[in-house]
Amino acid sequence: MKTIRLLLVEDNEMNRDMLSRRLASEGFELVSAETGQQAIDMAQSEQPDLILMDMGMPVMDGWEATRILKSSAETKHIPIIALTAHAFTQDEERSRQAGCDDFLTKPIDFPRLLKAIEQLLN
């Protein structure tokens, strides 16, 4: 079985560290990006199976990065899960409009995250 490659986009070092370690221990292959621009670059170069996208980031935020990824032929097929501390319904709405396939609020319910990844990849 092919190893699933995830791109984790997260500007907060602690959260990036924590999530990548936990996901790695679940058997995922992790690549990570700290900014929106990095995310786009890496999505193209690494061709991950799925992207976990933090929304509030400096320079290029998650919404914009998602929009770009979803409008590019090379990357639009990659499912994106929004991970954000913005927990209001309008935030979810906004994320889905930007093109996110799923939406999870921080603090992350890890089993739910795994389930969401599984659903999107099947």
């Binding site: 936990r22 221990s25 501390a85 913005h86 921080k106």
Partner: peptide
């Protein structure tokens, strides 16, 4: 507020679970 609280909580919960 919600955002600012969730961000560190995310780390706290995540790390402790880990």
């Amino acid at each position: 507020m919600s955002h600012e609280l969730r961000t560190p909580l995310n780390a706290i919960i995540g790390y402790s679970e880990m």
